[in-house]
Amino acid sequence: MSDAAQTSKPRGLNINWRYIWYQISRSPLMMIGSSIIAIVLILVIFAPLFATHDPNAISLRERLAPPSWDHFFGTDEVGRDLYSRILYGGQQSIAVGFFVVVLAGGIGTLLGAFSGLVGGRLDTAIMRLMDVVLSVPSLVLVLALAAALGPSLQNAALAIAIVRIPFYVRLARGQTLLVREMAYVTAAETFHAKKRHILRWHILPNIMSPILVQTTLDLGNTILLASALSFIGLGAQQPTAEWGAMVATGRNYILDQWWYSAFPGFAILITATAFNLFGDGLRDILDPKQKAR
């Protein structure tokens, strides 16, 4: 009995921290990814502790100052400290990432699992609708939605979430079709369990692993996309500190004051890469069978 408990590895959501740590420590990419994520999250969440200046304090005497001991990353065109603004700006970017992933992942997973479970014409209708959304390039659709909703970071996040939903629907539906054929679902049907019971207790817990991977990979992409929207003016508005918006304003000064665009851009790069590494590593851990993409 105890042998069996040790040799068979619990997978997925039965949390076994020692096993998780063992898996993370075996995968260098996952190590790098999770370390960077941890550092970025700490810096950003506790921004008031690490910031050296008020992110919105204007100091016209120090405008466009190069990096120095006083201003680690230099200052912008009205003399605000870029280092502090990047820390606070990360709050916006990462919050957008989590908001989008939770919203799109939640709605998409429920809709996809429901669609796969009921089948029939409703399933066909839902999937054709998703195909229509998917047939338009994501960025174009996000631009159109964000423009229609009006330029603000909240609306940009909402637009990205709407565009990401079909990906989760398709993933969740595919997994549901597999799980639905398992004997424990047939068993639940034989004791006349309701669809809601089957969804809650059998389908959702068993389709979670690939969706979890998708959400971590999506976090990086969303941060990029939110920054892109802010860059073209459809996201965060002045004076809110946000990485994409900072890169956009810094673009005007890029030839003489390289630090203005470079540091926020680097923050986007690092964070998005870290989430992607983490997601790739997580996929390998949860499903060792499909290592190659």
């Binding site: 959501l13 004997a183 424990y184 004791f191 369990a193 068993n206």
Partner: peptide, 27 residues
């Protein structure tokens, strides 16, 4: 019903006490 394959007829994500009482809980 009791199925042939006890591997796939028990949901791996549920503790045993939940598996055993599922017919009661589901109704």
């Amino acid at each position: 019903i009791v199925f042939q394959d006890p591997q796939s007829s028990l949901n791996a994500r549920m503790p045993i006490w939940r598996v055993i009482t599922e017919p009661v809980f589901a109704r």
